[in-house]
Design a protein around this nucleic acid. Sequence first.
DNA 1: AACGAGACCTGGCAGC
DNA 2: TGCTGCCAGGTCTCGT
Length: 272
Amino acid sequence: MPELPEVETTMRGLAPLVGQPVAKVVIRHPTLRWPIPADLVHTLPQQTLKSLTRRAKYILAQFDTGYLMLHLGMSGRICLLAQDEPAAKHDHFDLHFADGQVLRLRDPRRFGAVLWAGAEPEQHALLSVLGPEPLESAFDGDWLYRQFRTRSAPVKNAIMDSHLVVGVGNIYASESLFRARIHPQTPANQLSRQACDRLAAEIKATLTDALAAGGSSLRDFFGADGNPGYFQQEYFTYARTGEACKICSTPIQNVRLGQRSTFFCPRCQPKP
DNA sequence: AACGAGACCTGGCAGC
DNA sequence: TGCTGCCAGGTCTCGT
């Protein structure tokens, strides 16, 4: 379930590994979205994990000679094990640390990625083209309004474009648009400056709320049994087709945009 | 430059 | 019970 808050939560849960040297790298199934670099097995051991940061939905693990980039794709999970355990079917990648802890990547659909970014990850082709982080000040209504000038696509598609802003996935795109009272099919370049201000503010608020919820599940997520134990967040629209809008009781509708399910309230989010 | 469709994979579920 | 088809939280690549 990796949207941005889950990635951030996952990254924070890995903090106990910082300062630890790598003892061993295990690659079981190298064909994720891109091949896992085979030489990690030789180059990473003895290197110390110096820091953990996040850019978009990539977790950046800084080692002595560069950064390891981890992406969870659609179905990826990272578990932090206190000690080695038998690997399950979709456990593709392990980092074993000197104190016995194991970082284990599980990804049934294999849309995730493990990549080496070198010493300057912001130069990496996948990261250099990304838009601003949604929770930073560079992202605001003014930025959205200016970016939307040349965009005629539905606003929901636009806010999910990582070149424009990162970290807005399918769930939180619908949720943010509901909270901003904007119909998801509105052409981006038809939004007023005021609507862009609302939308930017609600994207920030939606992600901040989800992050607070994700944070509370951290203990469960890294529990001894390795089960996620997420508590289901309450959504206004997502996956609620036909159910009553929590504001006005109108049935929530579902439309397909950019090949993705999109949910909205036709009354709270009137067509432009 | 921007848009839409296709691609990558597996698992779960509804319907027959 | 077993098969088929559809759907799923991401996002890069390609053709227009």
